[in-house]
Amino acid sequence: MIEVEHLTKEYGDFRAIDDISFTVEKGEILGFLGPNGAGKTTVMRILTCFFPPTRGKAMVAGYNCFEDSLNVRKRIGYLPERVPLYEDMEVADYLRFVAAIKGTPAKEVQRKAARVMDDCGLGEVAHKPIKAISRGYRQRVGIAQALVNDPEVLILDEPTVGLDPKQIKEIRKLIKDLAGRHTVILSTHILPEVSILCGRVIIINKGKLVAVDKPENLRAEGSRRTYLRISGEARRVEEELARLEGVSGLTREQAADDTQAFILAFTDEKRGRQAINSMIERNHWDLIEMRPIEASLEDIFIKLVTREEA
């Protein structure tokens, strides 16, 4: 549905994005992750035809964003980061305007605007001017205007910023429900959001693509470590463990009573596990706990981003 090839955008001497390529399948939700100023918004602005790339090509639904911009724009709904809305208009009036300008036939404008207000929970503020509604409602009006013409592709720049936890939950549900029928690209700072919503994640930093993968694969890539707790004499347990083959990166953890806890990484998981088991058996210790620790997305993100900078 979306194809991006070797996209580069320069503002004078500054290169905002540098040779970025990725594709998004129909019905997929793609997360766009990156620190501030990484170039997320720039990619989104190219995809929404706000400005053209310096080099490279972006295609949405088979149309080139630069050469066939009108056909692309008919098929997208866009929520910019600042949520720019016409402050002096009433919510319902504004959504009717957007529905009409996006090509909805005149007799359906009212129905579409009413439906999207319903979906986004805007009934209460329908007749208030946009300048008078709260941040949460503004955000929802922004999402509503992106959705109003039922676009094939939705591009949402930080859709849950500035909302309270209950609203965040509602908006996430709304976005999640869109998957399948719509293709969604969303950018965010909030990492758990990515694992909740997105089928795939793109991490960019300083305009460069750092990683593209499923959230769970990215997690797996961040070295898997294991938590181990054994009853036994502290010094001997540590000595024996250090000597084992297939085990590395041993660090001691705080543990209760007379048990010893460690976090370790396997260089060879199968042999490492066997070695630990036979060690415990040989010494007549008890294995109390052994479980894998999943690296959080935060860890991976920071690791990927800092690796890039190193």
């Binding site: 602005r45 929404t48 035809c49 706000f50 009108l70 724009r73 008919k74 997208i76 866009y78 910019p80 600042r82 720019p84 809305l85 016409y86 402050e87 957007v98 300008i101 996006k102 090509g103 205007q145």
Partner: peptide, 14 residues
């Protein structure tokens, strides 16, 4: 100034 131009120019309008 308010940024609404970004939405206006990404609507399917010449």
């Amino acid at each position: 100034k308010t940024g609404t131009i970004e939405l206006l120019l990404t609507f399917p309008v010449n």
